[in-house]
Simulated assay, not measured.
Amino acid sequence: MTKTWFITGANRGLGLGITRAVLDAGHRVVAAARKPEQITKALSGSGYGDRLLAVRLDVTKPEEAEAAVALAKQTFGGIDVLVNNAGYGQLGWFENTSDEQIRNQFETNVFGAMHVTRAVLPLMRERRSGHVFTVSSVAGIYAVAGSSTYSASKFAVEGWMEGLADEVSPLGIAATIIEPGFFKTDFLDPSSVTYGAHDIADYAEQVRQFTEWHHNMNHKQVGDPTKLGSVLIQLNEMKQPPVRFAAGSDASGVVLKKAESIRADADRLKDLSASTDGTRETAAA
Protein backbone atom coordinates (compact mmCIF):
# COMPACT_ATOMS: atom_id res chain seq x y z
CA MET A 1 0.00 0.00 0.00
CA THR A 2 1.39 3.36 -1.05
CA LYS A 3 1.44 5.90 1.78
CA THR A 4 2.19 9.59 2.15
CA TRP A 5 5.05 10.42 4.50
CA PHE A 6 5.77 13.90 5.88
CA ILE A 7 9.45 14.22 6.88
CA THR A 8 11.00 17.29 8.51
CA GLY A 9 14.67 18.22 8.24
CA ALA A 10 14.71 16.31 4.95
CA ASN A 11 17.47 18.28 3.26
CA ARG A 12 20.37 16.36 4.79
CA GLY A 13 21.50 13.74 7.29
CA LEU A 14 18.95 11.36 8.73
CA GLY A 15 16.07 13.22 7.10
CA LEU A 16 17.50 12.92 3.59
CA GLY A 17 18.41 9.27 4.12
CA ILE A 18 14.91 8.44 5.38
CA THR A 19 13.39 10.36 2.45
CA ARG A 20 15.44 8.36 -0.07
CA ALA A 21 14.48 5.03 1.52
CA VAL A 22 10.78 5.86 1.62
CA LEU A 23 10.74 7.07 -1.99
CA ASP A 24 12.72 4.04 -3.14
CA ALA A 25 10.06 1.86 -1.49
CA GLY A 26 7.45 3.46 -3.76
CA HIS A 27 5.79 5.81 -1.27
CA ARG A 28 5.04 9.53 -1.57
CA VAL A 29 7.02 12.03 0.50
CA VAL A 30 6.39 15.59 1.58
CA ALA A 31 9.98 16.56 2.32
CA ALA A 32 10.20 19.65 4.51
CA ALA A 33 13.15 21.92 5.32
CA ARG A 34 13.97 25.57 5.80
CA LYS A 35 15.73 25.41 2.42
CA PRO A 36 13.64 23.06 0.26
CA GLU A 37 15.83 23.80 -2.76
CA GLN A 38 18.52 21.69 -1.06
CA ILE A 39 16.13 18.73 -1.13
CA THR A 40 15.39 19.22 -4.81
CA LYS A 41 19.09 19.47 -5.61
CA ALA A 42 20.05 16.40 -3.56
CA LEU A 43 17.35 14.26 -5.17
CA SER A 44 17.45 15.62 -8.71
CA GLY A 45 17.69 12.95 -11.38
CA SER A 46 16.43 10.23 -9.02
CA GLY A 47 13.24 9.70 -11.00
CA TYR A 48 10.82 10.21 -8.11
CA GLY A 49 8.60 12.51 -10.18
CA ASP A 50 5.41 13.76 -8.56
CA ARG A 51 5.81 11.38 -5.58
CA LEU A 52 8.15 13.98 -4.05
CA LEU A 53 6.93 17.35 -2.81
CA ALA A 54 9.59 19.61 -1.30
CA VAL A 55 8.14 22.28 1.01
CA ARG A 56 9.52 25.14 3.05
CA LEU A 57 9.25 24.68 6.81
CA ASP A 58 10.89 26.23 9.84
CA VAL A 59 9.49 23.98 12.58
CA THR A 60 9.76 26.74 15.17
CA LYS A 61 6.99 28.64 13.33
CA PRO A 62 3.53 27.07 13.86
CA GLU A 63 2.03 28.96 10.91
CA GLU A 64 4.60 27.40 8.55
CA ALA A 65 3.77 23.93 9.90
CA GLU A 66 0.08 24.52 9.26
CA ALA A 67 0.76 25.80 5.74
CA ALA A 68 3.02 22.85 4.85
CA VAL A 69 0.49 20.33 6.16
CA ALA A 70 -2.32 22.07 4.24
CA LEU A 71 -0.26 21.82 1.04
CA ALA A 72 0.40 18.14 1.72
CA LYS A 73 -3.33 17.51 2.09
CA GLN A 74 -4.11 19.48 -1.06
CA THR A 75 -1.47 17.57 -3.06
CA PHE A 76 -1.76 14.03 -1.74
CA GLY A 77 -5.06 14.01 0.14
CA GLY A 78 -3.59 13.49 3.60
CA ILE A 79 -0.64 12.27 5.64
CA ASP A 80 -0.20 8.67 6.75
CA VAL A 81 3.19 8.90 8.45
CA LEU A 82 4.91 11.83 10.14
CA VAL A 83 8.64 11.81 10.85
CA ASN A 84 9.71 14.61 13.21
CA ASN A 85 13.39 14.67 12.36
CA ALA A 86 14.35 18.36 12.30
CA GLY A 87 16.67 19.33 15.13
CA TYR A 88 20.25 20.05 16.11
CA GLY A 89 22.65 19.40 18.96
CA GLN A 90 23.47 21.99 21.62
CA LEU A 91 26.47 20.35 23.24
CA GLY A 92 28.78 21.59 25.94
CA TRP A 93 28.77 22.02 29.70
CA PHE A 94 25.60 23.48 31.23
CA GLU A 95 27.31 26.47 32.89
CA ASN A 96 29.01 27.32 29.61
CA THR A 97 25.68 27.36 27.78
CA SER A 98 23.76 30.62 27.53
CA ASP A 99 20.08 30.97 28.33
CA GLU A 100 19.45 31.89 24.68
CA GLN A 101 21.17 28.69 23.50
CA ILE A 102 19.09 26.56 25.85
CA ARG A 103 15.84 28.19 24.76
CA ASN A 104 16.75 27.80 21.08
CA GLN A 105 17.46 24.10 21.65
CA PHE A 106 14.01 23.53 23.12
CA GLU A 107 12.30 25.70 20.49
CA THR A 108 13.57 23.41 17.73
CA ASN A 109 13.90 19.95 19.27
CA VAL A 110 10.80 20.02 21.48
CA PHE A 111 8.35 22.75 20.50
CA GLY A 112 9.17 22.40 16.79
CA ALA A 113 8.19 18.73 16.81
CA MET A 114 5.06 19.60 18.77
CA HIS A 115 4.04 22.31 16.27
CA VAL A 116 4.25 19.91 13.33
CA THR A 117 2.52 17.08 15.18
CA ARG A 118 -0.31 19.38 16.26
CA ALA A 119 -0.83 20.33 12.60
CA VAL A 120 -0.79 16.71 11.37
CA LEU A 121 -2.87 14.92 14.01
CA PRO A 122 -6.28 16.26 12.88
CA LEU A 123 -5.74 14.57 9.50
CA MET A 124 -4.86 11.29 11.20
CA ARG A 125 -7.77 11.52 13.66
CA GLU A 126 -10.15 12.05 10.76
CA ARG A 127 -8.96 8.82 9.14
CA ARG A 128 -8.52 6.97 12.45
CA SER A 129 -5.08 5.87 11.30
CA GLY A 130 -1.53 7.15 11.12
CA HIS A 131 1.91 6.87 12.64
CA VAL A 132 3.99 9.58 14.30
CA PHE A 133 7.74 9.01 14.50
CA THR A 134 9.88 11.47 16.45
CA VAL A 135 13.64 11.26 16.27
CA SER A 136 15.08 11.52 19.76
CA SER A 137 18.58 10.22 20.47
CA VAL A 138 20.33 7.71 22.64
CA ALA A 139 21.08 10.92 24.59
CA GLY A 140 17.34 11.06 25.23
CA ILE A 141 17.59 8.14 27.61
CA TYR A 142 21.19 8.41 28.83
CA ALA A 143 22.87 11.77 29.54
CA VAL A 144 26.59 12.38 29.97
CA ALA A 145 28.79 15.36 30.72
CA GLY A 146 28.58 17.70 27.76
CA SER A 147 25.10 16.59 26.70
CA SER A 148 23.11 18.17 29.54
CA THR A 149 21.16 20.69 27.45
CA TYR A 150 20.77 18.45 24.39
CA SER A 151 19.72 15.51 26.57
CA ALA A 152 17.25 17.72 28.44
CA SER A 153 15.49 18.50 25.15
CA LYS A 154 15.46 14.86 24.09
CA PHE A 155 14.28 13.64 27.51
CA ALA A 156 11.41 16.10 27.12
CA VAL A 157 10.65 14.70 23.65
CA GLU A 158 10.56 11.18 25.05
CA GLY A 159 8.18 12.05 27.87
CA TRP A 160 5.86 13.88 25.48
CA MET A 161 5.89 11.06 22.92
CA GLU A 162 5.37 8.32 25.50
CA GLY A 163 2.27 10.08 26.78
CA LEU A 164 1.12 10.92 23.25
CA ALA A 165 1.34 7.25 22.24
CA ASP A 166 -1.13 6.41 25.00
CA GLU A 167 -3.45 9.28 24.03
CA VAL A 168 -3.74 8.51 20.32
CA SER A 169 -3.66 4.71 20.40
CA PRO A 170 -7.45 4.40 20.94
CA LEU A 171 -7.87 6.44 17.74
CA GLY A 172 -5.87 3.98 15.63
CA ILE A 173 -2.75 6.17 15.59
CA ALA A 174 0.70 4.89 16.60
CA ALA A 175 3.57 6.94 18.03
CA THR A 176 7.17 5.75 18.12
CA ILE A 177 10.32 7.33 19.56
CA ILE A 178 13.47 6.70 17.51
CA GLU A 179 16.68 6.70 19.57
CA PRO A 180 19.63 6.79 17.15
CA GLY A 181 23.20 6.21 18.19
CA PHE A 182 25.97 7.69 16.04
CA PHE A 183 24.97 7.88 12.36
CA LYS A 184 27.14 9.02 9.47
CA THR A 185 25.66 12.48 8.98
CA ASP A 186 26.83 16.07 9.34
CA PHE A 187 25.31 16.27 12.84
CA LEU A 188 28.77 17.03 14.25
CA ASP A 189 29.56 19.66 11.61
CA PRO A 190 29.67 23.31 12.76
CA SER A 191 26.55 23.86 10.62
CA SER A 192 24.58 21.54 12.91
CA VAL A 193 26.14 21.17 16.33
CA THR A 194 26.98 24.10 18.62
CA TYR A 195 28.90 24.31 21.86
CA GLY A 196 28.76 26.61 24.88
CA ALA A 197 28.86 30.38 24.54
CA HIS A 198 31.04 30.80 27.63
CA ASP A 199 34.34 29.40 28.88
CA ILE A 200 34.76 28.49 32.55
CA ALA A 201 38.29 27.53 33.52
CA ASP A 202 37.19 24.73 35.89
CA TYR A 203 35.72 22.83 32.92
CA ALA A 204 38.33 23.76 30.32
CA GLU A 205 40.21 20.45 30.07
CA GLN A 206 37.07 18.31 30.09
CA VAL A 207 35.52 20.51 27.41
CA ARG A 208 38.67 20.30 25.28
CA GLN A 209 38.69 16.50 25.41
CA PHE A 210 34.95 16.27 24.75
CA THR A 211 35.09 18.62 21.75
CA GLU A 212 38.16 16.92 20.30
CA TRP A 213 36.53 13.49 20.61
CA HIS A 214 33.47 14.66 18.69
CA HIS A 215 35.57 16.36 16.00
CA ASN A 216 37.47 13.10 15.50
CA MET A 217 34.21 11.12 15.33
CA ASN A 218 32.72 13.37 12.63
CA HIS A 219 31.80 11.45 9.44
CA LYS A 220 33.23 8.23 10.89
CA GLN A 221 30.01 7.14 12.57
CA VAL A 222 28.79 3.61 11.92
CA GLY A 223 25.05 4.23 11.34
CA ASP A 224 23.59 4.41 7.81
CA PRO A 225 20.71 6.94 7.44
CA THR A 226 19.14 5.15 4.46
CA LYS A 227 19.06 1.86 6.37
CA LEU A 228 17.30 3.67 9.20
CA GLY A 229 14.68 4.77 6.68
CA SER A 230 14.11 1.15 5.68
CA VAL A 231 13.67 0.22 9.34
CA LEU A 232 11.09 2.98 9.83
CA ILE A 233 9.10 1.49 6.96
CA GLN A 234 9.21 -1.90 8.71
CA LEU A 235 8.14 -0.36 12.02
CA ASN A 236 5.24 1.39 10.30
CA GLU A 237 4.06 -1.89 8.80
CA MET A 238 3.95 -3.64 12.20
CA LYS A 239 0.51 -4.30 13.69
CA GLN A 240 1.85 -3.28 17.10
CA PRO A 241 4.84 -0.95 16.59
CA PRO A 242 6.99 -0.18 19.64
CA VAL A 243 6.85 3.07 21.57
CA ARG A 244 10.66 3.15 21.54
CA PHE A 245 13.24 1.87 19.07
CA ALA A 246 16.99 2.04 19.64
CA ALA A 247 18.63 2.58 16.24
CA GLY A 248 22.11 1.10 16.00
CA SER A 249 24.04 -1.49 17.97
CA ASP A 250 25.65 1.30 19.99
CA ALA A 251 22.22 2.69 20.90
CA SER A 252 20.74 -0.66 21.92
CA GLY A 253 23.75 -1.28 24.14
CA VAL A 254 23.31 2.04 25.91
CA VAL A 255 19.56 1.50 26.37
CA LEU A 256 20.13 -1.94 27.89
CA LYS A 257 22.80 -0.53 30.22
CA LYS A 258 20.43 2.24 31.37
CA ALA A 259 17.55 -0.20 31.90
CA GLU A 260 19.75 -2.52 33.95
CA SER A 261 21.02 0.40 36.04
CA ILE A 262 17.47 1.61 36.81
CA ARG A 263 16.32 -1.88 37.72
CA ALA A 264 19.37 -2.50 39.94
CA ASP A 265 18.82 0.73 41.87
CA ALA A 266 15.08 0.08 42.23
CA ASP A 267 15.71 -3.44 43.57
CA ARG A 268 18.48 -2.32 45.93
CA LEU A 269 16.45 0.54 47.39
CA LYS A 270 12.92 -0.88 47.26
CA ASP A 271 12.65 -1.14 51.07
CA LEU A 272 13.80 2.46 51.48
CA SER A 273 11.30 3.47 48.79
CA ALA A 274 8.51 1.71 50.66
CA SER A 275 9.49 3.48 53.90
CA THR A 276 7.95 6.71 52.55
CA ASP A 277 4.46 5.15 52.40
CA GLY A 278 1.94 6.56 54.83
CA THR A 279 -0.29 4.46 57.11
CA ARG A 280 -3.47 3.37 55.44
CA GLU A 281 -6.54 4.08 57.49
CA THR A 282 -8.95 1.23 57.82
CA ALA A 283 -12.47 2.21 56.82
CA ALA A 284 -14.96 2.17 59.68
CA ALA A 285 -17.20 -0.83 59.66
Rank of each mutant, 00 (worst) to 15 (best):
2 T>H: 13
6 F>K: 00
8 T>N: 02
10 A>R: 03
11 N>V: 02
12 R>V: 07
12 R>Y: 03
16 L>N: 01
18 I>K: 07
20 R>T: 11
23 L>C: 15
25 A>Y: 09
26 G>L: 06
27 H>A: 06
34 R>E: 04
38 Q>I: 05
43 L>W: 03
48 Y>L: 01
55 V>L: 11
55 V>A: 05
62 P>H: 05
62 P>A: 03
63 E>F: 08
63 E>Y: 06
64 E>P: 05
65 A>T: 10
66 E>H: 14
66 E>P: 12
68 A>R: 07
70 A>R: 03
71 L>E: 13
72 A>H: 01
75 T>W: 09
76 F>A: 04
79 I>Q: 10
99 D>R: 07
100 E>Q: 14
102 I>K: 05
104 N>V: 00
112 G>E: 08
113 A>V: 07
117 T>N: 11
117 T>G: 08
117 T>M: 03
119 A>T: 01
120 V>K: 00
130 G>N: 02
131 H>L: 07
132 V>G: 06
146 G>V: 02
153 S>W: 13
155 F>V: 06
161 M>I: 00
166 D>M: 04
168 V>Q: 06
168 V>N: 05
168 V>A: 03
170 P>Q: 13
170 P>Y: 14
171 L>C: 06
175 A>C: 13
176 T>C: 04
177 I>W: 02
179 E>H: 03
179 E>A: 03
179 E>K: 00
181 G>W: 05
182 F>N: 15
188 L>M: 06
192 S>R: 09
207 V>W: 09
208 R>L: 15
213 W>N: 14
214 H>Q: 07
216 N>L: 12
216 N>R: 14
216 N>H: 12
228 L>S: 01
233 I>M: 10
242 P>M: 01
242 P>W: 05
244 R>H: 02
244 R>P: 00
253 G>H: 12
255 V>N: 10
258 K>S: 11
261 S>H: 10
262 I>V: 12
267 D>N: 08
269 L>R: 04
271 D>C: 02
272 L>A: 09
275 S>Y: 10
277 D>Y: 09
281 E>K: 15
282 T>W: 15
283 A>D: 04
